[in-house]
Design a protein around this nucleic acid. Structure first.
Lengths: 226, 226
DNA sequence: TCTTTTCCTGACCGTATGGTCAGAAGCTAC
DNA sequence: GTAGCTTCTGACCATACGGTCAGGAAAAGA
């Protein structure tokens, strides 16, 4: 008779490596298909083709389309939450907010599909992740709003509404992922280069930071104090 | 035998009134359903139910689901283009850009469904309105970028990248429509009141205008010239 | 080698969808 | 009234979808 420890060791072996690898391949394919076709437009067959396996194999790892979809949405949400570290470990407002903007822009660049899936989900009324919005996201938002309010109280930034500042950061950074196709079309049909991503990030960060008084006014402008 | 003028008069009569009214009812229902379910998730049956008519009647007015969808997308695009008037008729940069932001926020409030349909369409690679992006939108954008560049050259605003300024305005204003559900959830589950919409609009306008140097720095801040 | 467990897959099923069509019902002009 | 349209609709069809299942293949342990 084998004991529990033995079973654990087996579970961590090659068999579960296969499982992990297959699930990952499916999740990558699903993220792309859900992003490009929406939940309703995506088909299990398409995801299976993209993952390079028969459809029935998908259902071996993920019972239903919704299960698979939920996992994809959870993934991007987790990534976004991690970007919050910039906020908490920052020396001052400019570093905290600026770093958060940089992190969110980087995520938009590296995970455009996930961002689109999240956007789609929220736009359709968050049918499968409403609980996340009401618990995790609400809690996260309130914490970050307090941090911003503290910076306001300390005189580091202007007395803006922390809520709308957060929305502006989310909107602007995610726009580069969600509306990437439009941006690409307006960029002569070509994806943004490294340099253009840098310019976009700098533009966003500077306009927002200056807008909340965390940066000095641009030189040579009407209210330039010089 | 009736002549052409007679036919025209008939065409403009009650019969075509019915046609117009029915098409309008279908378009309103379709906009909502497409926004809430996406193109793939929307069904002609659902749209028909919402419009209060049998499904076959939809196909009498709109041959296919795609035809109907295209009309919905075209509608919101037309509305957005009209908001550009603020740009051209403005006395200065602050009035032009500020007015455009106000107009876009008002559209987000009045036409949230249309905004979502557009967002969905672009996110999925603009399969049916790619031509609009490449012609109308590209032309419009270039014109507005020139206007912004002129304001920069005249020293009215800081030397920001006009392109990214436009993207920021689009992103921020449309966010209040596209992510309205998330905003509502973070607002204790209640839609924004008149007062809250006012505050949101003011926040967006002021941060952006201050960010590009079209407004004096907020009082009491680090670089306050006072 | 034999057993057990995990992994894989072709074939299949019930359902829902976009779209069609023949013909009914209603309006307008003469 | 009646001829000539526009508008409306129930019934129908082919297809495609999500999901199931029986059983084969492969790996792991004894």
């Amino acid at each position: 008779m084998e004991d529990a420890a033995r079973k654990m060791r087996i579970k961590a072996g090659r068999r579960t490596d296969i499982r992990r690898a297959r699930e990952e391949a499916i999740l990558v394919a699903a993220e792309k298909v859900f992003a490009e076709a929406g939940f309703g437009g995506a088909t299990m067959q398409l995801i299976a083709d993209m993952a390079g396996m028969p459809k029935a194999n998908l259902h071996y790892y993920f019972a239903t389309k919704e299960d698979l979809y939920r996992r994809v949405v959870e993934n991007i949400f987790t990534i976004w939450l991690k970007a919050a570290d910039c906020f908490d470990n920052a020396a001052d407002a400019a570093a905290g907010i600026g770093g958060y903007i940089e992190a969110k822009m980087e995520i938009s660049r590296r995970h455009p599909f996930g961002s689109k899936v999240w956007a789609s989900e929220v736009m359709h009324g968050a049918p499968v992740i409403q609980d996340y919005l009401e618990t995790a996201l609400r809690g996260w938002t309130e914490g970050r709003m307090r941090a911003i309010q503290r910076w306001i109280d300390e005189g580091q930034i202007a007395a803006v509404d922390p809520r709308h500042l957060l929305y502006m950061i989310w909107a602007t950074t995610q726009h580069y992922a969600d509306f990437g196709h439009q941006i690409e079309t307006l960029n002569a049909g070509k994806p943004l280069t490294d340099r253009q991503w840098r310019a976009a990030t700098d533009s966003v960060r500077e306009i927002i930071l200056r807008g909340i008084g965390a940066l000095p006014p641009a030189p040579g402008k009407p209210w330039d104090p010089s």
